[in-house]
Amino acid sequence: MGHRGDPRRARSGIPARPTGPVVYDRCWRRRLRGARRCAAALLALLLTVDALAGTLDAGRALLWTGLAVLLFVVLLPARVSAGDGWLAARSLSGGHRVRTDLLVSVRCGDGVSRRLVLRDTLGNRVEIDPRVLAADPALWHQVDTGARRALAAGTLRSGAVVLRRLSAGIDAETARGVFKVSDLD
């Protein structure tokens, strides 16, 4: 791994082994525990109701277990990490990386769950929950630094407004957090 002919390097334009410090989503473990708890609570509830109704058997227990596993898979958060000039998200569907210093577009999809979609000049695409960046200033700093480089280089053609709004929201949330910790709120 990490050889000169590594196919991952050619595909993403990013070295196989990141250089410099790598920042990981520090809230990921908490969200993972939350997904486990929700799935376990659903399973316990379904098994309890079925047992109290006197209709619980092996087939139904297997069905409820499958439903709980499905809920866990749906709630399972992507593992987000960033470094100098890149952002990666790893989930059950695989890992995706973009070069933040080569961003072409950034959009924020509205709907039931907001998603931030980043695309780079190499054709790579990453979708993440913007709350992940809002909850982790170090992660946001890496993304923002790369996006500013892309904007300065002229590669970021659409999404500068989205990034400014996101930045303003993150700054406001950080200020509220500081005031709360300082008892100034």
Rank of each mutant, 00 (worst) to 15 (best):
G85C: 06
L87C: 07
L87K: 06
L87Q: 04
L87S: 05
A88E: 14
A88I: 14
A88T: 14
A89G: 03
A89S: 05
A89N: 06
R90I: 04
R90Y: 09
S91R: 10
S91P: 04
L92C: 12
L92H: 15
S93E: 09
S93R: 15
G94L: 07
G94E: 02
G95C: 11
G95P: 01
G95K: 13
R97V: 09
V98M: 07
V98C: 10
R99M: 00
R99Y: 00
R99H: 03
T100E: 02
T100C: 04
T100D: 01
D101L: 04
D101S: 02
L102Q: 13
L103E: 06
L103S: 01
L103K: 03
V104Y: 03
S105V: 14
S105W: 09
V106D: 02
V106E: 07
V106W: 06
R107V: 10
R107C: 07
C108F: 10
C108W: 08
C108N: 10
C108R: 04
C108T: 12
G109F: 02
G109T: 11
G109R: 12
G109K: 07
G111K: 10
G111M: 12
G111H: 06
G111N: 07
V112E: 15
V112H: 14
S113M: 15
S113D: 09
R115P: 09
L116M: 09
L116Y: 04
L116N: 01
L116R: 00
V117C: 01
V117E: 03
L118P: 00
L118R: 06
L118S: 04
L118E: 01
R119V: 05
R119D: 01
R119L: 08
R119Q: 07
D120G: 08
T121E: 08
T121S: 12
T121L: 13
T121N: 14
T121H: 08
L122K: 05
L122H: 13
L122W: 09
G123H: 02
G123F: 05
N124R: 06
N124W: 03
R125S: 11
R125V: 10
R125M: 13
R125Y: 09
V126I: 09
E127Q: 07
D129E: 11
D129Y: 07
D129W: 06
D129H: 05
D129V: 08
D129A: 11
P130N: 04
P130G: 05
R131L: 08
R131H: 13
R131Y: 14
V132K: 12
V132G: 01
V132C: 05
L133E: 12
